[in-house]
Design a binder for these strands. Structure first.
Length: 579
RNA sequence: GGGGGCGUAGCUCAGUUGCGGAGAGCGCUCGCUUGUCAGGCGAGAGGCCGCCGGUUCGAGCCCGGCCGUCCCCGCCA
């Protein structure tokens, strides 16, 4: 006995007259009392079964008992449908299976939610993920994920990159995200950490002579979650010796182009646009600019130095957006409230009404030259940010995205890739009162920036880059430091004492001292790429079994308590009892 | 750690200013139906209105707390 000869979605007119066995889930049943129609579904699609009591009385009997999501095995003859009965919305719509034998393989109770309904509560979907995964959208996402990984492997291996696995039980990472830790039974009181990325290990692989490495690596970061952030992610991790930025960018562009072609059928243009981090911040208020719409931030700092409007004259930086709409008072109040949520003190504006009138409480303070600079076409509004440059970028960047969305400026069919380059090496950490690495502590300073490391860390630029598509950061990387002396300088700027350096990174510094080649690489978030490809805002839908925002798996209930004996073996005593 | 939204039938939701009993669509159950594909027609079952407390003669609705969940800020080299 065969379970099936063909997949449900594969039945075509050319099979007419053939005897076939199909197996699948009941998508819908239409019971006419006599004739029964069943849409049989599997991963590939749907095929209509016709059960006629005159042809197969036993099958008809069984068909009346069939319910949604029963698993059936049906044996019969493929027949062309009469012209009136053809369903053009199905690829299999010209044929149907005239059933002789119908077997109920597995039964199913009424479902906790309807598989054909959108907007079902996510907890419920995750609780019954095995049902949720049957939905066409999830089938597509998971298939797309497999195809994407397959394409990546093909491209990387085509260029001589070697797939090498690195351990999941490793060492805590100072700096960076919070680590997930794993207690060691054999070394009581000590802990492994799950890797936030294989960063150090991939550098050591290159030092070890594997000059082109890649891995589809699982990475763990114990931080709070978001729609586009989970604790357990998958990365394409890449590292190479003797890196050349043009080669690396070219390779990654080719990888993306192949992935997009294989996964969406669309051609993306290469090479990708490039933009410095400084320009991204100034013109788009973001390090991951969404270039699917224009609306750049314009600078007015120089023009407002002598302004009669004190807020402008005294601000370190004045910039503005020209929104293509003359906003009403109420709308401006809402925009101001939005700006304040992002840290602005207020939101100055000039409304250029359709009738040519300028409406603004600040217009009377502005000089002719200032007004001339801000002047925009009738039916628009200039919206100002005046503050420290970082705050202006933050506020206007957020406002730009809001306007892009609400005024429907976004070209929803576009793929706008952009490399963001020349990131700063360090940023000041207010909380910790010290400098922090923007990328990571192994990032190479740009030529000429080495001198700033000890003297003016904020001025040092890094050989670090991100790849952004449609405002989503999908990848990022850098060239690394291969000189132990330079690495020690960077650690010193991060205020790691020599003792800490030795204890935490001694093995890396030692490796760098033993003939380390120049090296560099990049990592891509697999789920982020899929999110972009699917144009879906929820990263969890790119994962077969994700956890919810609280880090809980509603299906299995993980994380769960462990037996007291296990804790004892590990030498662990709980300070807090689970609720 | 903080802010916001949501929580009413299995699912998605509606429930005006607090007093007439808690409703719709889908799903489910039963019956009828031989060309449907959102099948049709008829009948029916199904509710600690998230939980606890308060205000009130009276709470699904007002107030407070808690829980769950989603979104955002912080955080995420």
């Amino acid at each position: 006995m065969t379970w099936r000869d063909l997949m449900c979605g594969e039945v075509r007119p050319e099979h007419a007259g053939k005897r076939l066995v199909l197996a699948g889930w009941v998508d819908t049943r239409r019971d006419h009392g006599g004739l029964v129609f069943v849409d049989l579904r599997d991963r590939t699609g749907i095929c209509q079964l016709v059960i006629n009591p005159e042809r197969a009385p036993e099958a008809a009997e069984a068909a009346h008992a069939v319910r949604n999501e029963f698993l059936l095995r049906a044996e019969g003859d493929v027949a062309p449908r009469v012209p009136e009965a053809v369903n053009p919305s199905l690829p299999t719509g010209e044929v149907e299976l005239q059933v002789d034998r119908l077997e109920i393989v597995s039964r199913c109770p009424p479902l906790p939610f309807q598989l054909d309904e959108e907007g079902v509560d996510e907890t419920l979907r995750l609780r019954y993920r095995w049902l949720d995964l049957r939905r066409p959208k999830m089938q597509r996402n998971i298939e797309l994920r497999a195809r994407l990984v397959s394409t990546i492997r093909r491209v990387m291996e085509g260029d001589g990159f070697l797939d090498i696995q690195t351990p999941l039980l490793f060492k805590p990472t100072p700096e960076g995200a919070r680590d997930f830790i794993v207690p060691s039974r054999l070394q009581q009181g000590r802990f492994f950490a799950l890797p936030q990325s294989p960063q150090i290990l991939k550098q050591l692989l290159v030092v070890g002579g594997f000059d082109r490495y890649y891995q589809i690596a699982i990475c763990f970061r114990d931080e709070d979650l978001r729609a586009d952030r989970v604790q357990e992610i998958t990365q394409l991790d890449v590292e190479m010796a003797f890196p050349d930025q043009e080669f690396l960018f070219g390779l990654m562009e080719r990888m993306c182009a192949e992935v997009w072609r294989d996964c969406s059928g669309e051609e993306v243009e290469t090479p990708f646009q490039r933009m410095t981090h400084a320009e991204a911040q100034a013109r788009y208020g973001s390090d991951k600019p969404d270039l699917r719409f224009d609306l750049p931030i314009e600078d007015a700092t120089a023009a407002t130095r002598g302004s009669q409007f004190g807020v402008f004259a005294n601000a370190a930086c004045v910039r503005f957006l020209r929104a293509p709409k003359a906003f009403s008072r109420a709308e401006l109040e809402r925009l101001e409230a939005f700006a304040k949520e992002w840290g602005a003190k207020g939101l100055a504006y000039l409304v250029f009404a359709e009738d040519g009138e300028v409406r603004s409480p600040i217009a009377k303070f502005l000089s002719g030259e200032e007004l001339a600079l801000f002047r925009s076409e009738p039916g628009s509004t200039a919206l100002f940010g005046a503050d420290e440059p970082a705050m202006v970028a933050r506020v206007l960047g957020a406002l730009r995205l809001l306007l892009g969305r609400e005024l429907q400026l976004v070209d929803e069919s576009a793929w706008r890739f952009v490399w963001v380059t020349d990131f700063p090496m360090f940023e000041w950490d207010e909380e910790g009162g010290r400098w922090k690495a923007v990328h990571h502590p192994f990032t190479r300073p740009a030529p000429g920036s080495e001198a700033f490391i000890g003297t003016d860390p904020g001025a040092a630029t890094a050989l670090a880059y991100d790849l952004v598509v449609n405002g989503i950061e999908i990848g990022g990387g850098s060239f690394r430091i291969h000189e132990p002396g330079l690495q020690a300088q960077v650690f010193a700027a991060l205020e790691l004492t020599e003792g800490e350096q030795r204890r935490k990174f001694g093995f890396l510094l030692e490796a760098l001292s033993m003939g380390a080649p120049p090296h560099g690489g990049i990592a891509f978030g697999i789920e982020r790429m899929l999110m972009a490809l699917c144009r879906e805002p929820n990263l969890r839908d790119m994962i077969a079994f994700p956890k919810n925002q609280a880090g809980v798996d509603p299906m299995s209930g993980a994380p769960s308590e462990v037996e007291e004996e296990l804790l004892e073996e590990l030498g662990i005593q709980l300070r807090t009892q689970p609720e």
